[in-house]
Design a protein around this nucleic acid. Structure first.
Lengths: 205, 205, 205, 205
DNA sequence: TATGAATGAGCGTTCATTCAT
DNA sequence: AATGAATGAACGCTCATTCAT
């Protein structure tokens, strides 16, 4: 289920100059951080000269903002699609965890790590723009968590639970390896199990 | 229990020039990140000239390393002391969570956030030096988690559980406010509850 | 014959930014030495900003290396041309002395003095690069000196003689003035006479 | 005759703090040049702290000046003593060459090379002070060269000859090795032979 | 659009010198 | 004398951004 071999890209990071720039920037920002990455490196990785880069983005920070916005849009859309297909609350909760984990360790890995790692490199104004998009994403989470709380499926306050889940999932980029002893689905079930009032049946690890 | 008003300092960050430098650096590194902090800012915050800084540390990166080492040493010692006073496995597990959460949201907050946020700014060589210390700290965790697993107190593999806990606790710096609706002890119990096979009695939130 | 009024430049030090930088650097390095010359001074003398200098050279030391390489190339070529036109051994020996003296007190004066004065400021690696070129130059000398020794024209071992000549010629930059009582040609003949077994006919000074 | 194993020191560079400082400075200035040598290195090599150095010398440049003055004084005295023992003009000329070569490749090697290499690092004022002493040394040379010219012993104008000799001798530090194929005495005779109107009897190399 | 030379402010670091102890 | 922390100006170099072509 985890997809690391699909292009380390998100929708909007296609073969256009803009798309190549965003892919290159996402990879470099993750590897080196925003400050340690130079616009020359980004331009070179996208096959253009540094001066040309500024025909596509007004500033280095705007590239960072664009990476974040694209990945949030893409993952919000994916999550909405997955939620729509889930038959009940428990399935929806599992879908949220699986989608977010997939985004963190799977196809949008680079850009998601940029979102976490380089957040502080964004000016307050640009943070606000990104947060506006992020809010819709968080609303998907809170709706399901409230629904789960209302049905006594989970033991923890939705607000707190969302944050504990965000911590568990985002941190997994530092250690989770789909080729390791724990599979992607096992990890999803483990995290789900920690949220549920009753242990998950057939739970592993 | 959370202690945010005590000096944002750790042992070794006293009133000596070195201590003032470390405190100032920890605060600035957390606020702005390593790359965005200049040695002139650190020196000014410690009340000395930028040139003088290099009488105490050979390089800017050495300051970062020192911040990390001091905070790990301090928190490892505190955790050992707290563990020694815990009567049983469950108490020890709770002590670990409380100690780590305290380190993240309490007195050593600045330096602990630097440890997470600025890790990638450290050269590989210096990372290794810090990791050597960090290993002892992680051993304390694993010993208790294995003990808890052996007694069926927890439901998740110790290796995986440690990482999920690390994610929940470290992420709490982004949202937890001891003056908010959830108290420090409630948060500790909530996290503890998510680990335990049976719900915690008298659990809150 | 001495040419001090022609541009204090060598081939490759033309009106291009690179050429202006090399000319300016040669003059400053000779006047102040490598360490006392700042990149800001070089840039200012070439009419650009200090940051722009690094579009043309990767480092200050690379400028020094380039000055040395250009002047060796230029003088090697000139010496080869002059040698080719010399009818016999004695004329070739005189041509070598005249060419080297011209390089030291004439048109390439600045850069040649840099070669001597700033040699130790070059890293071992860069010294090796320059030495590789210098070797071809020295081969021209040794071939003629061996020829002169074979014909009993000179009294001293070629290896030793080359070094004594190098000392006499390079040192002349400290005192020789073509407008002084000794002319360029007289000095060449004087030095030549000190090498030859029989006094030079029509010798002066 | 060459003396490389005697202390690399001159009179005045004894075991006193001042003497140790001068010896250390001479060695470091020769190795690294004046600008590349730090007062901390000099102090450390002399076994004191950098702050203490300024109780012995008012500035770094004063150390350089002192090294130069000591070595000129020492070599002037040695040359006077050697000249006094020479029976005739030819012996005196040979004594000058031998003394200067000894100073350059023998016991005062370090300091003499500093005199050549670091001359431009001295301020004009200090250069004048050193030149005043140097003048007496040069007078010894010129007196003998004039005497030799008067007796038609040499073929070249004394002023020019002195400079050609200075070049040959000072340059020999770059290549002469007393353990090599040419001995110290052979080199002295070779240089002497290049000055004399008639080839030296029993001349070698 | 694309280029790439140029900018210029700012970076981490060095180091001769000072001075209270 | 000796110490060593402190100074502060200056250094080589970086890099996001601009702009004439």
């Amino acid at each position: 289920m985890v997809n690391r071999r699909r292009r380390l890209t998100v929708k909007g990071m296609d073969d256009s100059p803009r798309g190549k720039l965003l892919s290159a920037a996402a990879r470099l920002f993750r590897q080196r951080g925003f400050e340690r990455t130079t616009v020359r490196e980004i331009a070179a990785a996208a096959g253009i000269q540094s001066g040309s880069l500024f025909h596509h983005f007004a500033s280095k920070e705007d590239i960072l903002k664009a990476v974040m916005i694209e990945v949030i849009r893409y993952n919000t859309a994916r999550m909405e699609a997955t939620l729509a297909a889930a038959p009940d609350t428990r399935a929806r909760l599992r879908a949220l965890i699986a989608c977010e984990l997939e985004s963190i360790v799977g196809d949008t890995r680079e850009a998601m790590l940029v979102l976490v790692r380089c957040w502080e490199s964004l000016s307050k104004e640009r943070q606000a723009e990104v947060l506006a998009l992020r809010r819709a994403y968080e609303e998907l989470w809170l709706a399901v968590l409230r629904e789960a709380a209302a049905r006594s499926l989970v033991r923890v306050d939705p607000f707190v639970l969302r944050r504990l889940l965000a911590g568990m999932v985002s941190w997994s980029n530092t250690w989770f390896d789909p080729r390791g002893p724990t599979s992607f689905d096992q990890l999803v079930d483990t995290i789900l199990g920690m949220c549920l009032r009753e242990p998950v049946t057939g739970e592993s690890t």
